[in-house]
């Protein structure tokens, strides 16, 4: 695939946001908030950073692998997967409907190309990514393994088991990203369960930590991922703290937990789509 410019990637992101909103609106269910907040990240991964093959093979030998731990933001993943050729874009219209391959939370049961493990019950993706990364080491495969987690998800205990393990066993072909939007379903993380200082927590566990200060700026996101990659292979797992705004790209959705799991109505959809240009053609 030809390398896309930042502007071209931003155009893809605009379409991805339209896909997210239209999918969630159509079934009046799903999670638009963090999907919109992570749109630059997913676009940068699938259209710029990952070495991957849309002719999907589960094993992913000699490919970079991506795992989504906070599976509820499936709309953004489904959009980038279909927009990068894993399955027809028309299939997005089946999101969360009966007999669809696009389950509410990502799953392998229906053989949707691009998905390697089910997620949705939180806290499990980091462990899975570690296993996949260690398998690559055994196989002498020098590609990377990426995983995205939520910040609220850091409240799950399994994550800290995995964090301890990855540092102890020097799983340094792993780049974990936390979507630091400071929101969870019941409210701001500061009120629900204060994360205090995730950088200090992970550093004390033995990780290399970087911040991507503007996770909704394409250039910054790519710079962050490039930096993370440059720090890999040095004996420590790498954490990328991706500072995002939930609902980014739609003025009335931005920066609040209110749109975590709420679908826009007809008028709200129209208002939102008016803010996002249709760059690649709606499905």
């Amino acid at each position: 695939m030809e390398k896309k410019s930042t502007e071209q990637l931003q155009e893809v992101a605009s379409q991805v946001r339209r896909d997210i909103l239209r999918m969630v609106h159509q079934v009046q269910s799903g999670h638009p908030g963090a999907s919109l907040g992570c749109t630059e990240f997913f676009t940068a991964l699938y259209f710029d950073q990952l070495k991957h093959d849309s002719d999907f093979k589960m094993e992913g030998k000699n490919e970079d692998l991506f795992f989504l731990s906070n599976g509820h933001i499936s709309p953004v993943w489904y959009s980038v997967l279909s927009r990068s050729g894993y399955f027809p874009i028309e299939e997005m219209s089946t999101f969360r409907k009966l007999n669809s391959r696009l389950q509410g939370h990502p799953a392998t049961e229906e053989d949707l190309p691009g998905i390697r493990i089910a997620s949705g019950s939180l806290g499990q993706g980091l462990s899975v990514a570690i296993g996949a990364a260690q398998a690559k080491k055994i196989d002498g495969d020098d590609r990377m393994v990426y995983v995205l987690m939520g910040d609220g998800e850091q409240e799950e205990g399994q994550i800290w088991e995995a964090a301890m393990y990855a540092a102890h066993w020097k799983v340094d072909n792993l780049i974990a990203t936390i979507d630091l939007n400071r929101q969870q379903i019941d409210g701001p993380t500061k009120e629900i369960m204060d994360l205090i200082d995730l950088r200090a927590k992970y550093e004390s566990f033995g990780w290399t930590v970087i911040d991507t200060e503007n996770g909704n700026d394409m250039k910054s996101v790519i710079e962050g991922l490039e930096k993370a990659k440059s720090l890999a292979g040095k004996g420590k797992p790498v954490l990328n703290l991706l500072h995002t705004e939930m609902g980014f790209g739609v003025d009335f959705m931005v920066g609040t937990h209110k749109w975590h799991g709420i679908a826009p109505n007809d008028q709200q959809l129209a208002d939102a789509l008016a803010q996002l240009s249709e760059t690649l053609g709606d499905y």
Partner: peptide, 28 residues
């Protein structure tokens, strides 16, 4: 030794790592 993984007292993590290992064709 290169095909053995000590996870410490962390069974949840062990199950996840096993699942991840299996993706590439390992039999954990």
């Amino acid at each position: 030794p290169e095909r053995f993984f000590q996870t410490g007292i962390a069974e949840a993590n062990m199950m996840g790592i096993a699942a991840g290992l299996s993706i590439s064709g390992k039999i954990p």
